[in-house]
Lab assay of single mutants.
Amino acid sequence: NQASVVANQLIPINTALTLVMMRSEVVTPVGIPAEDIPRLVSMQVNRAVPLGTTLMPDMVRGYA
């Protein structure tokens, strides 16, 4: 089972991601792999991401 990136807090739209906003968790469906967390830092979300939501590739500008 692969860990995915999950929002550690509410992340408002257009917010640049920081390490404290994300955690890794084994979830279904699988989202962005946890090993990509360092790559996600400073990328912006293109929608509001509620606490506990799995980050999907289409939620992060420039990721996919």
Rank of each mutant, 00 (worst) to 15 (best):
V60H: 01
S4K: 00
V49L: 15
L40T: 01
Q44L: 12
N46M: 14
V26T: 13
P50Y: 12
N46D: 12
A64N: 10
V20W: 15
N8A: 08
V45I: 11
L10F: 12
T54G: 03
P50V: 11
L51M: 15
R23D: 04
A3T: 09
G62F: 09
D58P: 07
M59H: 12
Q44E: 08
M43D: 03
A34E: 14
G52W: 06
N14Q: 08
S42C: 15
A3S: 13
R61F: 08
I37Y: 03
P38R: 06
L51K: 12
V20M: 15
L40P: 00
G62N: 06
R47T: 11
P33I: 13
D36S: 10
R39T: 08
I32C: 03
D36P: 00
A16H: 14
A3I: 09
I13Y: 15
V49K: 01
A3K: 05
V45A: 10
V49H: 02
M22L: 12
I32L: 08
P33T: 12
M43H: 11
Q9N: 09
P38Y: 08
V27G: 03
L55V: 07
R39E: 05
L55K: 01
V6Y: 02
T18E: 05
R23G: 05
D36W: 05
T15L: 06
V27C: 04
T18C: 05
P57A: 14
T15S: 10
P12F: 05
R47P: 02
L19R: 11
Q2T: 10
Q44Y: 14
S4W: 02
R39C: 06
M59L: 05
Q9I: 10
I11L: 13
P33F: 08
L10G: 13
A16Y: 12
S42N: 14
T18W: 03
N46P: 03
A64Q: 09
V45H: 00
A7E: 01
P29W: 04
P29D: 09
I32G: 01
Q9H: 12
M22A: 00
V27T: 11
Y63T: 03
L55R: 01
Y63H: 04
V20N: 13
P29S: 05
A16R: 07
M22G: 00
T15N: 05
N8V: 10
I13L: 08
N14S: 08
T53Q: 10
T54F: 02
Q44I: 07
V5A: 10
P12K: 12
T28I: 07
L51A: 11
V45F: 00
S4N: 01
L10T: 13
I32E: 00
T54Y: 02
M43N: 04
S24I: 14
A3V: 09
I37A: 09
L40E: 00
E35Q: 10
G52P: 00
G62R: 05
R47N: 15
V5E: 00
A7L: 03
M22S: 00
Q2C: 12
G31W: 02
Y63S: 03
V41A: 06
V49G: 01
P29A: 05
A3H: 11
R39A: 08
S4F: 03
P38M: 11
S24H: 11
T15R: 07
D36I: 05
N1V: 15
T53A: 13
T54K: 04
M56H: 10
T28G: 09
L51V: 11
R23F: 04
G31D: 01
